[in-house]
Every structure is written in structure tokens, then in C-alpha cells.
Amino acid sequence: MRRPLTAAALTVSAALLLTACSGGGGGGGGGADGEGGPDIVRPTTPTGVTAQAGSATSVHVMWERSTDDRAVTAYDVLHAGRRVATVPASRHMVDVERLAPSTPYRFTVRARDAAGNLSAPSAEAPVTTPPAVPDDRTPPTRPAALRGTADGSRAVTLTWSRATDATAVTAYDIHQGGVRVHSVPGTTTTTRLTTLRPGTRYTFTVRARDAADNVSPDSPPATLTTADAPAGGPATAPTGLTATARKGAVSLTWTPPDTGAPVKEHQLYLDGAFATTIVWGAAPPPGRAAYTFTVTDPPGTRHTVKLRARLPDGTWGDFSAERTVTVP
């Protein structure tokens, strides 16, 4: 069973390594940068909010990321004005569970920053949970014939054959790198995924889910590569990422993007999910950067890693190419 790496462990490792590499302190962190006086600017309102029933007692809520003059730190998901979930800014989806079957719900999302400023609530996303199916322990069949097409440099379209179930398929979950990145209704067998990275190889699988929350095996994988970015735009992704696994640790090296100013902050994503922020307390080291984090997983466990840099304007650049490492 995979045991996720904790952000605390990553931060400790970063501090040790960055001190050795740059002669300055390092650590993980987030939130406002403390510059420019009090932060009184609210984040923008989340858009694109959708709610999809995953089972008779759960709903999958998704939204587009908000922006802030400094940084969004979290999102609150609300039902009828009451907060039912909070997730970090790196996530833009959540499962709301312990709901009642055959019940209508209306969800909204709001963004918050480190100073406690809250955005206005998003537009409502209505959804009705399906009826409960007692004693249903049979999962749907695996979706078949998954195939994909790259739509330019930042999107792909996936299609698959319908799964079958003893009652009904209520949703399909799309996974990338072992992490769920999207869900669609059980009546849908195609979807378009956006905000991908140009010139990057992705592998997707699909699982079917029924009202009792039984989940099918993975579909056969579909691997495809997005087109390269159009010429002329500045490159904002770290390049040359290498990941080397040894007993108890994974070591990364990469070249930060050329932004015209020192890049002091990177975000590390582990298995598709935000893990920690790498910060140089002083001037970052010249040339290639290096970072090591510990792992405690059993031998043979696979992890994917990728990075992105904080740009001089405060926004986050494109993700690096994703690397896969196996615990020896």
C-alpha cells in the first residue's frame, strides 16, 4: 500500500539540501510574501464549478483556479452557505461524502488567501444523488477501448467504451499518473482535459463507478503527447529534470527557467498532487538546482515527480516534464 510523502518531511529535507548547495537557508512555505503592506485584495471568484454524483452518498465537485495579487492558499466548498470541505490551493476538486441518497444539492466554491481575504462565492452547481442500492457489492466492468487525441499543446480528448453494471454506472473517473484528475457522468463516454503542458507525454486510464461506490478495474491505458508550444512565447517551465531513486530517498536536479530574475521558489508535485514548496532563503544557487526528499515506501513502489517555478510577476509557470522513479 502506498504511503504518501508528507510535506513536513519534504520541507526538512529541502532545508538540509539547500543549505549545503547555496550556503543559505531553505525551507517550505506559502502564503503572502509580506511585501507591499497589508493584503486587502480578495481573490477572484472561482469559475467553471461542476458537481457530479459519484455514488448515492458522494458528489465530486470541480472548479477552475482563482487568482490573487499574492497567492490563493485554499478553497472552501459550501452547500446552502455552510462549508463542507476545504482544500489547499494546489487542488481544484474534492469529493463531498456522507450525503443522503436521492437528494438535491447545490454547491458553491470560494477562494481564500493567506491574509484571510475571501472571494465571492461561485455560481451554484446543482446535483442530485442517485437512489441507494442495498447490498450491491459488484463493481462495474472495466471501461474498454480507451483512446485519446491531443488537441494542440494544452488539451487532449479521451473516448472509451461503456462499462456495464448490475444496476447502473453513475460516473467515470479519469486518472493520470495514478491520480484522479476528472470525473464525468455515467452517461458520458468522452471528455476533454485542458491546462496540460506542451510537448509532454501523458498516460490516462478510466474507471467506472456505481451508486454503491463500487469501482471497476482500470481501463487499458492511453498514452499520448501534447504538441509543442507555439514559437515566440517565453519558456516558463524548469528543464532537464532528472530524478534518481536510491534507498530511502529520491534526488532531483533541474535547470530553472530563464525569467530575467532569480527564481527563488518552486513547487514539487508528487504523483500528480502538490507536495511542498521549495524556497531559497537567500540567492538561489547558480546553474542547476538540486533537491532530495526521503521515501519510506516498499521496494518497487513507483512515483511520478514534476516541478514548476514562481515567476517574477508572482504567477506559477508551466510544469516541467514529468519523471517516474521506482523505489529500489
Results as ranks from 00 to 15, higher is better:
Pro134Thr: 13
Pro134Gly: 06
Pro134Trp: 06
Asp135Arg: 04
Asp135Cys: 10
Asp135Lys: 13
Asp135Phe: 13
Asp135Trp: 09
Asp136Met: 02
Arg137Tyr: 10
Arg137Thr: 14
Arg137Val: 13
Thr138Pro: 03
Thr138Phe: 12
Thr138Ile: 14
Thr138Met: 15
Pro139Gly: 09
Pro139Lys: 10
Thr141Val: 10
Arg142Met: 14
Ala144Glu: 15
Ala145Asp: 14
Ala145Ser: 15
Ala145Pro: 04
Leu146Pro: 11
Leu146Gly: 05
Arg147Val: 13
Arg147Pro: 07
Gly148Tyr: 14
Gly148Asn: 12
Thr149Cys: 08
Thr149Gly: 05
Thr149Val: 15
Thr149Phe: 13
Ala150Tyr: 03
Ala150Glu: 07
Asp151Gly: 10
Asp151Phe: 12
Gly152Ala: 10
Gly152Gln: 13
Ser153Phe: 12
Ser153Asp: 11
Arg154Asp: 14
Arg154Gly: 11
Arg154Lys: 12
Ala155Val: 08
Thr157Arg: 09
Thr157Ala: 15
Leu158Asp: 00
Leu158Ile: 09
Thr159Phe: 02
Thr159Tyr: 09
Trp160Asn: 06
Trp160Lys: 13
Ser161His: 13
Arg162Gly: 14
Arg162Cys: 06
Ala163Pro: 06
Ala163Phe: 08
Thr164Ser: 12
Thr164Met: 09
Thr164Glu: 09
Asp165Thr: 02
Asp165Ser: 09
Ala166Ile: 11
Ala166Cys: 04
Val169Gly: 02
Val169Phe: 11
Val169Asp: 01
Thr170His: 09
Thr170Asp: 01
Ala171Cys: 01
Ala171Gly: 01
Ala171Trp: 02
Ala171Val: 11
Tyr172Lys: 08
Tyr172Trp: 10
Asp173Leu: 14
Asp173Pro: 00
Asp173Tyr: 09
Asp173Cys: 00
Asp173Lys: 03
Ile174Arg: 00
Ile174Asp: 00
His175Lys: 08
Gln176Cys: 15
Gly178Ile: 01
Val179Gln: 15
Val179Lys: 12
Val179His: 13
Arg180Gly: 07
Arg180His: 04
Arg180Asn: 06
Val181Tyr: 00
Val181Thr: 06
His182Met: 02
Ser183Arg: 12
Ser183His: 00
Ser183Lys: 01
Ser183Asn: 03
Val184Gly: 02
Pro185Lys: 11
Pro185Leu: 08
Pro185Trp: 09
Gly186Val: 12
Thr187Ala: 10
Thr188Ile: 13
Thr188Asn: 08
Thr188Leu: 12
Thr190Tyr: 13
Thr190Cys: 03
Thr190Val: 12
Thr191Pro: 02
Thr191Val: 14
Thr191Phe: 05
Thr191Arg: 06
Arg192Cys: 05
Leu193His: 07
Thr194Pro: 00
Thr194Met: 13
Thr195Asn: 04
Thr195Gln: 14
Thr195Phe: 04
Leu196Thr: 03
Leu196His: 07
Leu196Val: 01
Leu196Arg: 07
Arg197Trp: 05
Arg197Lys: 10
Arg197Pro: 03
Arg197Glu: 15
Arg197Thr: 12
Pro198Gln: 01
Pro198Val: 06
Pro198Asp: 07
Pro198Trp: 06
Gly199Pro: 01
Thr200Cys: 10
Thr200Trp: 05
Thr200Val: 10
Arg201Gln: 15
Arg201Ser: 15
Tyr202Asn: 02
Tyr202Gln: 02
Tyr202Met: 08
Thr203Asn: 03
Thr203Asp: 02
Phe204Glu: 00
